[in-house]
Structures are given as C-alpha cells and as structure tokens.
C-alpha cells in the first residue's frame, strides 16, 4: 500500500498558475473553484519589497479535521492517504469546509453546468453540440465519472453536483492509472513533486530526506501530506496581489 504525498518547492515556483489551470481542466471544475490555488504575495515597503508565491492544494491531512467532522462519512481518507469526498453521500452541510484550516473546500452553490463560464459562452450552441454530443464542458473528462479504488465510490469530482462539496482529489483518477496529478504534470519548473513516501527509494522520498521541509499551519496539528521546501510560512503581513475572479 502506497502513501501519497506532494512537495511544493517555493524556491522554484514562478507563480504562473498553470497548475490551477491544469487542475480546472483535468477536473472540469466550474467557475471560481480553485482546488489548487496559488497565492501571489508582496511584503515590505518600496524599495525593500519582496515577493513570494504559494501554491495551495488540499493538504490531504493525516489528522484531517474535515474527515472527523463529516456527519455522513462522505469525506474520508483512503489508506493511501488521499482525502476524498463521496459526491453521492455528501449532504452539503459544509461542516468539512468550516473545520478545514486551509480553506481548500468548494461547494457547488449552483448547478455546475450553469456555472460553467456560461456568461461568455452558450454551450447549447447547436454547432458545438454537434461536435461535443452535448458535453459541458466540451472537454468533459469521462474518467471523472468512474468509481475508483477499493472503495469504488464516486470520488473523482465527476459528481460535480448542485449542493455538494468538493476539493482537490490528488487527481485520484490519474493516480489510479499511474499518472502524475495534472498540476504536477504541467508545472514548467518542477516546483511540484508527487509520489509514494512509504517506499524510501522513490524520488520524492529521497527529495524529502535531502531537503529541509515544513508544513502549512503546522501548529494546527493536521499532519498534512503536502510538504513545502524553501521560502517561509506566510504571515498575516503578506499582501495578496493579483487575485483571480474568485466569487460567484
């Protein structure tokens, strides 16, 4: 049994947000949902200004508050460490979101299809329907609808549904097929690494051994599976710049 983890290397990150985009496309998340989010921070005063970037996926905590509080077990942690949401079981109470210290949970406030950039694009356009057989988005990823892992529950995010919670799945549908998560895969500068930390010989295990790592909000005792390298934990003095359109 593997134990999956991710490393975020802040000495490499360009803050380019390709990971966010890859995540949105791979997982077909709708508007303003950022399972992966990259902060762009500024601190200090001109000319002694410093900038930093901070990618923030779900931390897949080993001691996950979200899992503890879920009243239905829709939010659960697999033996391989991946924390998932069963979109068939979730009742939309949003307790996991409140319990999570990292703000990584996203609720389907409306029917995903209605939220799919439909202000700018009319997906019902017959000329497109012809090509896509009515899929919304047209690049809808069938792997998301499948049931994965021993638990065989609908966890890959394909269950995007009104009134249900979702978040980063470590791209379970890719990991199950032996692929790297979409964000890791696209990162231009290898600022993201993913792999099995139970096996000491995997590249990621070696990397974690060789480098000094830290966790986000260590003090909350959530024991994340996401390790950070370089940089430093963000402080409340940080000013966030260049925020995306994040409210629906």
């Amino acid at each position: 049994m593997a134990k999956y983890a991710m490393v975020v290397d802040l000495e490499r990150c360009q803050g380019c947000r390709a990971c966010m985009e890859a995540c949105k496309i791979e997982n077909n998340t709708s508007e303003a949902m950022f399972w992966m989010y990259v902060f762009r921070f500024e601190e200090g005063v001109y000319p002694d200004t410093r900038m930093s970037f901070l990618p923030r996926p779900c931390q897949h905590c080993d001691n996950a508050p979200c899992v503890k509080v879920c009243p239905t077990g829709a939010r659960f942690k697999r033996d391989d460490g991946i924390v998932l949401t069963d979109s068939d079981r979730c009742i939309g109470c949003r307790y996991c979101e409140l319990a999570c210290p990292y703000g990584v949970n996203y609720f389907n406030w409306q029917k995903p299809n209605d939220a799919y950039y439909s202000d700018a694009i009319d997906w019902s356009d017959p000329d497109i329907q012809e090509v896509t057989l009515g899929a919304i988005p047209p690049y809808k990823n069938p792997a998301l609808d499948e049931r994965w892992g021993s638990e065989q529950r609908r966890t890959a995010g394909g269950g995007h549904a009104k009134g249900v919670m979702e978040k980063c799945t470590f791209c379970v549908q890719r990991v199950e097929q032996g692929l790297q998560p979409a964000c890791v895969e696209t990162c231009p500068v290898t600022a993201l690494r993913f792999g099995d930390v139970e096996d000491p010989d995997t590249p990621i295990s070696r990397f974690i051994r060789e480098r000094e790592t830290w966790h986000l909000l260590e003090e909350t005792g959530t024991e994340p599976s996401v390790f950070y390298v370089g940089g430093k934990p963000p402080s409340q003095q940080y000013r966030e710049v260049e925020r995306p359109k994040a409210r629906v």
Binding site: P71, T72, G92, C93, Y95, N108, V164
Partner: peptide
C-alpha cells in the same frame, strides 16, 4: 434548510450516521 442536499440529508444523516461528528451529535 441549510443543507445543499436536503432530501439526502434526512436519509444519509441516519443511514451513514457518524456519532464522532459533533454535528451528528447535536443533530
């Protein structure tokens, strides 16, 4: 009324009840 999936809520809250969850406890 606060649930995103009220119908499910009524059923799943009992069907998959997790007493560990304070929310379940209160409910």
């Amino acid at each position: 009324i606060d649930l995103g999936q009220p119908v499910r809520g009524v059923i799943n809250l009992f069907r998959y009840a997790r007493p560990q969850s304070p929310f379940f406890g209160t409910f």
